[in-house]
Amino acid sequence: MEFGPYLMLASLEGAVTTAVLSLTAVGLSLVFGVMRVVNVAHGEFFMLGAVLAWWIASAIGGMGGNPALGFVIALVLAPLVVGSIAAVADLTILSRIDYDPERTIVATIGLLYIMQQVTLMTYGPDARPVEAPFNARIALPWVEFADGRPQIYWPWGFGTTTYKLGVIVAAAIVLLGVWFVMARTRIGLIMRATQLDRDMALAFGIPVGRVYAFVFGLGAGLAALAAVLVVPIQQAHYLMGGDPLLLSFIVVIIGGLGSLPGTVLAALLIGMSDGIISVFFSPTLAKIIATLLVALVLVFRPQGLFGTRATR
């Protein structure tokens, strides 16, 4: 493929990655920012979202329903269910160990094992697809100069699907919604107050325990929502949580702890660079270079690209 369309295609793919990643990472960032704990099980909440989406979609499909209807119901129901599971886990486990950073890591690794095994035993080891509500291939045009004038043509293999574009739009809408909640509503104000100073928030009568459970559930719910969006592109599988966890972890740190705009910008950076670097190098080498770049960014800007205060 010619260079121009190739770069454009890689950017489009990068944009889809960015969309899904930013939702997942914003979820982790909320938990990180407000509660100051590393949730290792975040990727498993993502996985649960995808698996539930499959279940809901195939149940609706089994009753003779429209696949699009199943998908829409999953889009609403799966995040709610996953969010509730997370909130319960927070109330029964994390709150009882007082959100101690290190013990939280062990406890969430434990949760990760539990969720993976339960999914394996009930849902099984297969990767299962969910049908997209709409999915048409769009061939994209490109312009080249021939015979001294610009001409439009359709390069071989240059295209995308309507669903992928839909994912980008949906993610943007949800992110705006999260921003609105955080910046313009009372619950957002309470969350920000808790983030800034937990003790002061307590003193002002904010039910910090309930706020934490809500935030933990909200973070997990966002991950699940991202997973429902991605499951028509990538299938639901009980081990699918590892990659989103690592990537969103990176995004949160690069973006600067607890900074939502920073997180989204970092998702854009990571998602796009992953796609674009692959244009110039052989695939695995591109991964190595992208990985080292992330490390070096942090080495020379430990507070993250968009963060202002030192971490911890």
Partner: peptide, 24 residues
């Protein structure tokens, strides 16, 4: 390199270096 960072950034930097070695 990694000791220029602390806390979670140190976790990520070590994680990334390890991942780079794995891929290498």
């Amino acid at each position: 390199l990694a000791l220029r960072t602390v806390g979670v950034a140190f976790m990520i930097v070590t994680l990334m270096f390890a991942q780079a070695l794995f891929l290498t």
